[in-house]
Write a protein that binds this DNA or RNA. Structure first.
Length: 152
DNA sequence: GCCAACGTTGGC
DNA sequence: GCCAACGTTGGC
């Protein structure tokens, strides 16, 4: 089983949306590095839900990968913001996964706090200029973050 | 294949 | 809302 961190803007899709839906398609990833990580995800993997581009960016909850990578349907929808006219129908360019709500923490483990943790120095999230929207988390990193989240 | 222009991300 | 950082596009 692997661990991940996935970012989303709460004004678009936040942890409360996932609570309402229980299971949702994680769509709209249009970056190849992030897509490749999506394709590595396996059912049962755990992921932190991270709120980006908001008042207090940080980790707010926990979810589980409920369905492994499959073609993101929004890439074929001309009406959709994430439509990609260049994606071949017989070899879809973009992947989505289904995620399932697990837990919402009582507080936010903020990016500012995460940046102070020496164990996370190698995590893409806290490295200068990094905009990767989802990334793998090592078991050690996961344990450090989870302990702080559950205390928060 | 280079690289300038452009668009997007996301912290602040 | 600003803007730095970075990815992508497309002319050459």
């Amino acid at each position: 089983m692997a661990y991940w961190l996935m970012k989303s803007e709460p004004s678009v899709f936040g942890i409360d949306h996932l609570i309402d839906r229980k299971v949702a398609l994680w769509d709209g990833v249009r970056n190849y590095q992030a897509r490749n990580f999506l394709r590595q995800m396996q059912k049962g993997d755990l992921a932190f839900f991270y709120h980006s581009n908001c008042e207090v960016p940080g980790i707010v909850g926990l979810m589980r990968i409920a369905k492994e990578g499959y073609p993101d349907p929004t890439q074929f929808d001309p009406e959709h913001k994430y439509f990609d006219p260049k994606s071949p129908a017989d070899n879809p360019r973009w992947t989505g996964v289904d995620v399932e709500f697990v837990e919402k923490f009582s507080g936010t483990l903020s990016l500012a706090d995460l940046k102070t943790l020496p164990e996370l120095a190698e995590l893409a999230l806290v490295r200068k200029g990094n905009r990767l929207s989802l990334m793998p988390v090592s078991e050690e990193q996961w344990q450090v973050m989870l302990a702080l989240c559950q205390r928060a």
